[in-house]
């Protein structure tokens, strides 16, 4: 890998992983490595000490529904989410994320915890979980704390994890059965892509009027993911029609503060975001 003296600490249980991270605060945590391994090879990422938590799939791979709360263990793979029936109905967007995620072999290894903690704009679960107002559970030898996802992911490859903590779970309240959810991403092809922009929307329709809409994108300001609050505020209470959609598109362009990079210009990304917004709203109008 990146350096000569690479030290690997292999944790075989959550208990030992918590102990190890409390004693090795400088360690880089690796789940199944689908993000980190290419970065080491392609981008020359330098790591000196790795805490391997891949064996924690025995403890942290689960999708539990406690009355209204859905709890997903950090080591749950994308494939496991795809083959669970928990997300049928109002959470259908989870299957849309899965079907557009990497390739089949990547889905068998990539974990939701790794996806969140990698915290790049290409991590497709982050917008959907933000639209669901999800929280992450962080654990250390001193106990657990729960943090809203939007306070956890604070920038590109930047999360509010204390260096003695391990992210163990993501959780959110299940929206009512009358809710609809959708996810779209756009890149240069359909599979194995790093998206240019993605968007998740969760909302319900009450007497054909938009209710409690939550719109989240992988980028709202620079490379930071978040909610499109201005557009949400505009849409709530309105009946979706052509005029409302075109006004919503303008609101979205107003609030997105994007930057250009080698993949796409800011203007093009905004154009794509508007197109996705229109597509999803039209879908919801037709009740799917």
């Amino acid at each position: 890998m990146g350096v000569e003296d690479l030290q690997i600490i292999m944790a075989e249980s959550l208990k030992s992983a918590l102990k190890e991270i409390s004693e090795n605060k400088d360690a880089t945590i690796i789940a199944n490595g689908t993000d980190m391994m290419p970065r080491i090879r392609d981008e020359g990422l330098k790591v000196e000490k790795i805490l391997d938590i891949s064996a924690l799939d025995k403890e942290l791979s689960y999708i539990n529904v406690d009355s209204n709360l859905i709890r997903i263990g950090a080591m749950t793979t994308v494939s496991e989410i795809g083959s669970s029936n928990v997300f049928n109905g109002s959470l259908n967007a989870f299957y849309e994320v899965v079907s557009k995620f990497g390739g089949p072999q990547i889905r068998n290894r990539a974990t939701i915890g790794g996806n969140i903690c990698s915290a790049t704009s290409s991590e497709d679960f982050i917008p959907l979980l933000m639209a669901l107002d999800a929280s992450v559970v962080l654990q250390s030898v001193n106990g657990k704390r729960t943090l809203k996802l939007n306070n956890f992911v604070i920038g590109k490859r930047s999360v509010n994890r204390r260096n003695d903590e391990i992210m163990v779970e993501v959780q959110f309240s299940k929206p009512g059965d009358d809710y609809l959810s959708g996810f779209e991403k756009i890149g240069r092809r359909n599979i194995l892509i790093i998206n240019l922009i993605n968007m998740a929307i969760v909302m319900s329709l009450k007497q054909r009027r938009v209710n409690d809409v939550r719109i989240a994108l992988n980028r709202v300001s620079g490379k930071v993911p978040g909610r499109a609050r201005l557009t949400e505020g505009f849409l709530n209470g309105k009946e979706i029609d052509g005029n409302i959609i075109s006004s919503a598109r303008e609101k979205l362009a107003e609030e997105l503060k994007l930057s250009s990079d080698f993949r796409a210009s800011a203007d093009y990304r905004i154009h794509l975001a508007q197109a996705i917004l229109e597509k999803l709203l039209n879908r919801f109008r037709e009740g799917v």
Binding site: I30, M37, P38, R41, P104, Q105, N108, R109
Partner: peptide, 29 residues
């Protein structure tokens, strides 16, 4: 060698995975 082409596919615990982006130490057990 970076997880894009799929040619290193093997089956781990019953599921196809990419052996070029799987650290060898993660194959233990």
């Amino acid at each position: 060698g970076t997880g894009d082409c799929g040619l290193c596919t093997v089956i781990m615990d019953g599921k196809p995975i990419l052996s070029c982006i799987t650290p060898a130490f993660q194959a233990r057990g």
